[in-house]
Computed example of a mutant assay.
Amino acid sequence: MSLPPIRETIRQHGLSASKALGQNFLLDEQLLDRIAAIPGDLHGQDVLEIGPGPGGLTRALLRAGANVTAIEMDRRCLPALAEVEAAFPGKLRVIEGDAMGIDPATLFPGNYAIVANLPYNIGTALFTGWMSGREWPPQWTSLTLMFQQEVAQRIVAEPGGGIYGRLSILSQWRARARIAMKVHRSAFTPPPKVMSAIVSVVPIPAPPGVDSPVLEAVTEAAFGQRRKMLRQSLKRLPGALDALAALGIDDTRRAETLSVGEFVAIAERLSA
């Protein structure tokens, strides 16, 4: 079974992007193939896609040889996805549901990659959930995710700037995160008001002796009052000021000046 161009599929099924669901459709097949190539060779690999919509990226992943499990809560898109499923027999599994309420670990017997043009309204929440797992390395081998460019920049931000914060540390303390591609707003239908970017995240060994919830508590306290000195922002976190002193970290500094490694060192002290 051959598939019509994705634009024609959208027309045939009377689909339109739902603002309430944070949808923006990508139609350029060459661009979609480039996105599907970011995580590397996907031939025979299990891939999770969130919010496939009419299936543009889904097709690209299948063309790349992946076995795709796609979670879609918009019932209007299911007939279009069924056509993709028929065109790639045994390669696509579509699950109707809310990705926020589905544990990906229950969908795969082994490792899998996540590739998605994430709905803007749940993208950050999904990402932080995947990055916050206590077990590391995670079952997923890589994340290739479309975000608003502002969010993407926060994920890869370095210390010293106003966008460096909790999301930066969560993304970098046990993973390599990079912006793999910027995507102009004109590539979408309808065009969003902001530019987008694709972030690639690959897990690396976690620093030993650090409890993930402890690190999250440290960064929450530090950046919750980011304009204050650490002596003020961390004083209500038991043991934090003693950890600063033991590590030789000046407590007059502000959170945005500390490196990821320094936050990890504080968390290691408090996890002991």
Rank of each mutant, 00 (worst) to 15 (best):
I102R: 13
I102P: 03
D103F: 00
D103G: 02
A105I: 03
T106Y: 00
T106I: 00
T106D: 13
L107V: 06
L107M: 08
F108Q: 13
F108S: 11
P109W: 00
P109C: 03
P109E: 12
G110H: 12
N111A: 15
Y112G: 10
Y112Q: 12
A113D: 01
I114S: 10
V115D: 13
A116W: 01
N117P: 04
N117R: 15
N117A: 13
N117W: 10
P119G: 06
P119H: 05
P119C: 03
Y120R: 00
N121P: 09
N121I: 02
I122L: 09
G123Y: 14
G123M: 03
T124E: 07
A125F: 05
A125Y: 08
A125I: 01
L126F: 11
F127P: 01
T128A: 07
W130T: 04
M131E: 02
G133M: 01
R134I: 04
W136N: 14
W136Q: 13
W136L: 11
P138S: 08
P138H: 01
Q139G: 12
Q139C: 09
W140Y: 11
T141Y: 00
L143E: 11
T144D: 07
L145E: 14
M146Q: 01
Q148C: 08
Q148D: 14
Q149N: 09
Q149D: 14
Q149C: 04
Q149R: 14
E150K: 08
I155N: 13
I155E: 07
V156Q: 08
A157E: 00
E158V: 09
P159D: 02
G160F: 03
G162P: 15
I163T: 14
Y164N: 04
G165V: 08
R166C: 00
R166D: 02
L167V: 03
S168M: 02
S168F: 00
S171F: 02
Q172I: 04
A177F: 05
A177S: 15
R178V: 10
R178H: 13
I179A: 14
A180W: 12
K182S: 12
V183N: 13
V183R: 14
H184W: 11
A187T: 06
A187E: 15
T189K: 12
T189I: 05
P190K: 02
P190T: 06
P191F: 08
P191S: 02
P192S: 06
K193I: 04
K193P: 11
K193S: 13
S196M: 07
A197I: 05
I198P: 07
S200D: 10
S200P: 00
V201A: 06
V201H: 12
V202L: 08
I204V: 12
I204R: 15
I204K: 15
A206E: 02
P207Y: 05
P208V: 11
D211Y: 15
S212E: 15
P213R: 00
L215C: 09
E216K: 12
E216T: 10
V218R: 01
A221S: 14
F223T: 00
G224F: 14
G224E: 15
G224C: 10
R226W: 09
M229S: 12
L230I: 06
R231M: 07
R231V: 04
R231I: 05
S233N: 02
L234F: 06
K235Y: 06
R236C: 04
L237H: 04
L237V: 03
G239R: 11
G239Q: 02
A240N: 05
L241S: 00
A243M: 09
